[in-house]
Design a protein around this nucleic acid. Sequence first.
DNA 1: AGGTAACCGAGACGGTACGTCCAGTCTTTAG
DNA 2: CTAAAGACTGGACGTACCGTCTCGGTTACCT
Lengths: 204, 204, 204, 204
Amino acid sequence: MPETPQQDGARRASIGARRNPAAEAAILAAARDLLAERGYAGFSIDEVARRAGAGKPTIYRWWPTKADLLIDVYSAEKAAIIAAPETGALWSDILDYTRALWAFWRGTPSGRTFRALIAEAQAGEAALRALRDKFLPERLKDLRLMFERAAARGDIDAAAVDALVELYIGFNWVRLLTDRIADDPPGIEAMARTLAGAPPGKAQ
Amino acid sequence: MPETPQQDGARRASIGARRNPAAEAAILAAARDLLAERGYAGFSIDEVARRAGAGKPTIYRWWPTKADLLIDVYSAEKAAIIAAPETGALWSDILDYTRALWAFWRGTPSGRTFRALIAEAQAGEAALRALRDKFLPERLKDLRLMFERAAARGDIDAAAVDALVELYIGFNWVRLLTDRIADDPPGIEAMARTLAGAPPGKAQ
Amino acid sequence: MPETPQQDGARRASIGARRNPAAEAAILAAARDLLAERGYAGFSIDEVARRAGAGKPTIYRWWPTKADLLIDVYSAEKAAIIAAPETGALWSDILDYTRALWAFWRGTPSGRTFRALIAEAQAGEAALRALRDKFLPERLKDLRLMFERAAARGDIDAAAVDALVELYIGFNWVRLLTDRIADDPPGIEAMARTLAGAPPGKAQ
Amino acid sequence: MPETPQQDGARRASIGARRNPAAEAAILAAARDLLAERGYAGFSIDEVARRAGAGKPTIYRWWPTKADLLIDVYSAEKAAIIAAPETGALWSDILDYTRALWAFWRGTPSGRTFRALIAEAQAGEAALRALRDKFLPERLKDLRLMFERAAARGDIDAAAVDALVELYIGFNWVRLLTDRIADDPPGIEAMARTLAGAPPGKAQ
DNA sequence: AGGTAACCGAGACGGTACGTCCAGTCTTTAG
DNA sequence: CTAAAGACTGGACGTACCGTCTCGGTTACCT
């Protein structure tokens, strides 16, 4: 993955009085790779600038806080993410979604990126606001769909949807933040059945 | 709370070839107060040393990583924490426990401390291990009690206990990490009833 | 003095394929005011451009180095400067000239400007050349007049004129560069009499 | 000259809660060499730190401003400087002293250093104060000796000493600041005779 | 009883990163 | 061709912390 697209020896100059997409791409790529290689501990604006062949002011101009940069890195990757699946049963929807999400977190720099974003939010107000007011609601909306569909089918109580979504998100956060998102079918399935109210032994 | 017990003008010398409890207390108190005042962002070993009137090596001697210090700060406060309540019904047990936990997080430096610990775990392997292998299991064991009691009563399926605990922990983490632990009876109650499998309208 | 003539809200566009006098005036005025307000330390092309409502390239086009700009700023003000006086005696000529020069340096941004120019000459070859080969000879020529007149009168040895001029310039530079050009009649008079070879007690 | 005494591969650690002479020496040497090589334009704290193998805070700890560092660099070299000579006549004293001074300025990094110090004084109050209140008086005292001796001999008027010293210093400054301190016997001699009041043709 | 080992505060050390400012160059858009 | 605008890389600024080290001093333990 680490294949930052720049450093062709030539210097990347301005393209006039507007944002240079090449610079933006180089910075995002450098940030992504750096996160992938060294995690949050090694993630510094200095190093991103160095790798991207960019000036620090260029970074600060477009991403005033680290959180802004992290969000963009995460979003750029999220394109690949799975839409809520539709297996017919909530518990297996959850199972599929979770495995896909964890695979995404493991297989791309995204897991590291999201962990970094949460960490950053514990230190800075800006990151916290971004996480709470922008990131989380978006994800919530996304997930609610899955649960509302189940409610429409009568699988779960419609009044419980909000709580279920938040519980589900929490489960994923704890796993990610404690670095336990290796593929874990038994753990995930138990969680999925519990959330869906499906008896544990009951086959799909 | 900020009443760091030191700075009497006199220098706190060694008491021989063993740990000086006064130094330890001063450092923990300084760390606690600093966290309370400035949060994770302002939490530095330099500042703790300054406030405690301690030398940095003294801190590093006993707490090699920030995480070690954070854990001790958190543990020192945890004395006050509530044992799992016993109301007779799981959903109200959860409700009580959660409100007590959040009050504890809000009313002491503990919330800040725990947030700091989680953030630290995203940057350092040591903190991660401490959080995952020492802190979390301990908490898990603590909480499992509450759910196992409910399973014994037949309120929930015994096979779901582990998942329920992890879901519940996740809910609390998300709330804490996004700074949404203000007293929130509706949100907590919905979560508690959902987890306990109790119909939303059902009175206590 | 700070009354930079621009910033009328309107944008100052090009006036075709030739230098825009309005832009030039605005830049010189901005440079002068900036020097007056913040001295050499605060004198940056960025800030001049900002104040003048000009683009940096516009400045660099016409004044390739800071020294060029400083020289123009100084020259623009120098119009007001006193021609060599004619009191009949060298020592009082010097006295008058010096007091006029220092008053000029104190009362306009010129003192700051000239100090900036000398400082700039210590860092850049261009400024050095400008100072040494353009500025200094011009001033020398100006001053030599005063001393040559005295030599013609027989007050001083004609062969000493060059040395006297350079000594006199040096005196002024040291005073300016160490910020000691407050009105100083005794100091100036002693210097003037010494240079002119006039006995100190001798009245005019 | 550039033979900075460090970089033996080993890291230069602290030697306890006190200033490390090795670090001080390395920093002064690096500063001196940098000045010699690149002059004031290339003189940055960053580069000094790099060359000295020192941390920037170590430099700022002991030399809060650039001027402080420049003064120390100049002073360290000044050991070699010539005491006021005693040839029996003022004009030849001046001649000797000047040639020795200029040779010193040319032959060591001192010329560059002093130019840098003067430049710095145009930008910062600290440097100005150091130059005006510490450096200049010291030099003045040094030089007054030479002129007072001449006054005692009756060569010059005792009342003119102060002015003569300041004129003489000014002459040297102008020459240094305009980079004209190449050996210049005619120019120096004319100045010396003029200051000393000796007829130009008179042999030694 | 004396020597020594480990502790204590203090603070300097080499470093890395921070976020900002400025230098000088470039390109676009408009006149 | 000119001007304005503002982006671009690059590098220096001065500060905050990091984790390590050495000092000088104190006290308890073990010969």
